[in-house]
Design a protein around this nucleic acid. Sequence first.
RNA 1: GGGAGUAUAGCUCAGCUGGUUCAGAGCGCCUGCCUUACAAGCAGGAGGUCACUGGUUCGAACCCUGUUACUCCCACCA
Length: 910
Amino acid sequence: MEIAPKYSPREVEEKWYQFWLDKKLFHSEPDQRVPYTVVIPPPNVTGVLHMGHMLNNTIQDVLVRRARMQGKNACWVPGTDHASIATEAKVVKMLADRGIDKSSLTRDEFMKYAWEWKEEHGGIILKQLRRLGASCDWDRTAFTMDDTRYESVIRVFVDLYRKGLIYRGVRMVNWDPVALTAVSDEEVVYKESQSKLYYLRYYVEGEDRYIVVATTRPETILGDTAVCVHPDDERYSWLRGKRVIVPSVGRSVPIIMDEYVDREFGTGALKITPAHDINDYALGLKYGLESIDIFNDNGTLNAHGSSYAGLDRFACRKQIMRDLEAAGLVEKTEDYTNKVGHSERTDAVIEPKLSAQWFVRMEGLAKRALEVVEDDTIRFHPAKFKNSYRHWLENIKDWCISRQLWWGQRIPAWYFEKEGRTETIVALDEAEARTIAREQYAYTGDLRQDEDVLDTWFSSWLWPISLFDGIRHPGNPEINYYYPTADLITAPDIIFFWVARMIMAGEEYMDKVPFHNVYFTGIVRDKLGRKMSKSLGNSPDPISLIDRYGADGVRMGMLLTAPAGNDLPFDEAVCEQGRNFSNKLWNALRLVSGWKVASETISNSSSSDTSRTSSTNIPSNESAVQWMEQRMAQVLEEVERDFDQYRLSEALMATYKLAWDDFCSWYLEMVKPAHGEPIDRTTYEATLSIFTRLMLMLHPFMPFVTEEIWHQLEVEKLKLKIDNPDKVEEYPQFSILNSQFSIMNQRMPQSVYYDQRLLDEFDTAREVIAGVRNLRNTRGLSPREPLPLTYLATDSRFCISHFEGIIRKLGGISSIAAADAKPAGSLSFMVGTTECFVPMSQSVDKEAELKKLRDDLNYYEGFLASVMKKLSNEKFVSGAPAAVVEKERNKQRDAETKISALKAQISALE
RNA sequence: GGGAGUAUAGCUCAGCUGGUUCAGAGCGCCUGCCUUACAAGCAGGAGGUCACUGGUUCGAACCCUGUUACUCCCACCA
């Protein structure tokens, strides 16, 4: 079978993903195994895949696939978020494009459009995730507004209300006067803008004196109910207890004194408009001030605006300034730069507005959520996020959960009027509300349901529970098995909105934390360190990246640059590295599967003399296999340690080097038979086994190429067992192989004991080979011509006997021998403290040689001096641990050896 | 304004409990190679006053003081 010299990911990825789906290899059901559960951070249902998703989901897939291969019952639950604000905005825009105004629709009509739109355009992102190779259990795909999740949310609302943890109250919200809705703090964008600071005169009641107040919003004086100064501000101490007249309005308002005021700013006097500024509102509450709302919902002045009623707020500002100017009430006007909040959606200037909203009491929930992170029941990776988590929870405010939208879970509260009072009933549905109305209030008339919907986070905080229907059916087999989940992988910017609240919900409804570990990813930036954004156009399309580099390549690119919690400057070049790596593995397969296997087991494939050592008689292939096994065990240990600490990029890099450097560059070169020669069966089997385990190690990172190669390796293994390898396709095992088995079902190799001395010895051998190659390279020696190698047997630590065969083969060495003195006419290089020689076949540049030697000598003499300085220090010798002192003595001996060797070389040349 | 973090090779970052993993890795760069698996490759090589400062210590990239620069989060100012 011919194998193409270039790996082409496209067909391979399509083939295997479909295979995995067909065989239901991602599907999980509760069983006797240990569960490993991950719930996806649900992306917006109308979203498209961006680099942040790529990173986040690649990490999840790596952890899930690894857990699966460790024999755990891995369950990764996918789903989408209804994202009420963003989605509603998109639907409104879609309707507008079709000439339909949202306000012309009833709520039911709008919801019908919205659902249609969601069915049509929703969930694209989940399809895209398949391209990435995400091993989600798609049978479990959920939506935060599907029936199960919707009902769970309503139940939780009712439950919390009945526990007294939900209440309705008044609060200042960010009002968008164009969209006619409140928007969350996160949807307000602050923009620098050139504005003016107006200095206005407030006359003291009954006196001819006035105080000057600075404001950027003179129109709001219509709602002023106080003027505030700092209690320690001597400039204004005379005002204590007095009242002032609000200009234009003529209303008398008190002077209040509070330390909130910044004496440095403006005149140090602040007008208080409780209805239109969040801080003023707080002061209003503190001092019992009246709150006068002067605006209509659309930003025009209402009846409190007296003569200005009906004007837009900005028109009013101009007009009121003209009028105040005319009345001589303006002290001065200054240019001023400040930040003004705009609506992300409509760009309208946000108006702070008081309104009735629903809240969740946070105090008790926050306390428990903090405890479980403080005591490491839940671990954060990296741990530094504990700090901001703590800070937020310790200063938490009640959670406003109502939104003035239609797309979302409608708040299950019903109102009716009775005896002039508005009564509120919170119930699971209208029928229950009616029953309550009848039984508790003797009311049978119409009920009016609250118009608002719930904050999207009020559904996503239940996600780890509601996915397993643990709200509606506590204690069901699924929730008992899958909860708590294992790891949560998310971006740090939603640590408060989502992570903290899931922990609260977990404690409240399951009495258990929702996950054990939280892995915070970094933010994907471009090479220049800018955040990726649509407006900058600096975000590559992930699907196009996959098209060009393969999913494995892109996954590797993301992972290599993404240590936990660090931002990652994304550069396509790393995807290229990933693609190259796939190709490298592919070509290793081409090489190995092309080998002919000797029909009888012989101790060595290349029967030439050079591959047997004279001194120790260890076949080079046997030592190669031994070394590779030790090395693999060593890397496995390292990788396990890395995974324990969630250091995925380190784990991948270690595996990458094992595969590329150790396996391809060294091992395969060691065992590669001479051209046209077969390889011995023992070595071949060992090679297939090692290669297979490498694929297992790499599979979580690069699922597609490893699955493909793994299968082909299984075919090679099968060929060894059957009579006629050329007709492998005709054997029944072949079809089984292709129809049932997957690398996904294989067990991840585990670290075992390894012989460090053997690894060290190989490193020495490797240095010898590199030394020879370097000489050939720099002295123009033929790479082919066999050279005899001798070395000065002065250091007993210099040990290469185990790998002499390999040194011969890879170094092109004809013989290896110890010597007592430098052979005449030879080139030398140092390996550790041992000097090695090969014969010099041509004249050398004597001066250059001498210079290099003298430089080395210089360095080692300096090094020796620093070591001697330490050793002659009485305090060091007596104070440092014996082992450390001994190490210094060794350094001294080594340096002395090298120095005398160098001196000898120099004098020989001179 | 409050809080957290970072500074090590051209770039991105490791460096765990202070001492041979102590100055490392990957990429990039330079030199030479189309050596029959791979030029998406092979072999070799060069690059750093560990931001600056002072201290602790026999010994500091690592611990402490201060300085500078940058980043993030929270609160936002009339």
